[in-house]
Design a protein around this nucleic acid. Structure first.
Lengths: 216, 216
DNA sequence: AAATTATTTAGACTAAATTCAAATAACGCT
DNA sequence: AGCGTTATTTGAATTTAGTCTAAATAATTT
């Protein structure tokens, strides 16, 4: 088998040169690019075994380039070399089909090891990446949106009580009975609430109550 | 430096014996256990460098044992050897602080490599694990509950159209105008929908519409 | 052709919401 | 203690919306 050929892509010259310095006798560096756009061109012409690429780059970032290369040249194995620990980005790239993911703090040995592993057809992911992915997702919808919190805070205790009851599907009369007040009172409260929340339909109240977790 | 010492834990004798067979000249196998409980005892007495353990085991499973060992003997490096791809389990174990995670389909070489990496102080996670973790979480609330799907399916197209409009806060009259039909018709549809969904309040309709993702 | 289901409508009735107007209670402020 | 503000409460008259019953027409299925 031939020596593994590589294209290096990073917008910082020192990084590319440094990588080249310690990869050079062992691997064949076919080319070096400074952004995703150039990387695509270079890969098409040079057809390397492995593409070692950064994410943050001007003109075209590594994620876009990786996607394009995956679809047009699936035989090229992509290794991402990044500072990013952000889960969504890592996930996206793995879903796109990159074969490896290294953090820039990786040792020379790890980079060499990753390239060899990937060149042989197996994926290689830095353990930092795995650990980063292991933190559970925060469900976005459980959090109370700031503007809702603000609106909610300007309701009085009684109003919140009534809003909750409305959200639970009780009519003015039922609420009145439950709270031992007149149903006119309940209506007034409800109208005041609607003014404060700037909604003009009961549905708006119900939706707001749901959003704030007052019901269901 | 001394040869790395290991304790093997798996409820299947063949697996333990098989592992021992190819690890033996290279590493020092101090002991073999069949469940988590025995593993804890054995680790306390033998103090191995590395504990290679399954998850699914009788008496006490590997997760519980890993947690216990992590808190009582943090210097012992734990590698999980499992069939599990389940994200929540993998995550939990990484959060507990296991240093490695291998899938049972791993090659001999990978197992040896993992043990060496972990013994030297670096984590080692099989790439299958990383890929498994890279799939985005499905927020539980976005999924349509089966009973809601069933109820929704027994509504007619027209009824769904009206349900949606109700959920958006339109009154019967407004819906009537929008659909170029009489408001009586809208009422009838709404009542039929309520019968089908077994709710007796408009709020029920709105909540159902939200649950089914028809609105908002 | 007959039976079901879907869509449409009306009238009489009932319930609910809106508007306008205002009283009482509570709270902080000077 | 007196003032202003806000919260909570209520009523009457008015307007709007929703329910119930009943039924016709269109579309589909059997």
């Amino acid at each position: 088998m031939n020596v593994t050929s590589i294209v290096l892509v990073d917008d910082h010259q020192v990084v590319v040169d440094g990588l080249e310095a310690f990869l050079n006798p062992h691997f064949s560096i076919l080319g070096k690019a400074r952004n995703g756009k150039d990387a695509i061109q270079m890969v098409k012409i040079l057809k390397p075994d492995v593409l070692l690429m950064d994410i943050d780059m001007p003109v075209m970032n590594g994620m876009v380039a990786a996607k394009e290369i995956r679809s047009s040249m699936p035989e090229v194995k992509i290794i991402i070399l990044s500072l990013h620990y952000e889960k969504s980005i890592i996930r996206h790239l793995i879903q796109i089909g990159v074969m490896g993911y290294l953090i820039k703090s990786s040792s020379k040995e790890e980079v060499v090891n990753a390239i060899e592993t990937v060149a042989s057809g197996s994926p290689y992911f830095s353990s930092d990446v795995t650990v980063a992915l292991s933190t559970p997702d925060v469900p976005t919808d459980t959090r109370l949106a700031p503007q809702n919190a603000k609106l909610l805070s300007q309701l009085t205790a009684r109003e919140i009580e009534i809003l909750k009851a409305v959200g639970e599907g009780l009519s003015s009369k039922e609420i009145a009975k439950a709270l031992h007040i007149s149903d006119r009172t309940v209506d007034t409260h409800r109208n005041n609430i609607m003014k404060k929340l700037e909604v003009n339909k009961v549905v708006g109240l119900i939706k707001f109550a749901i959003k704030c977790g007052l019901v269901e």
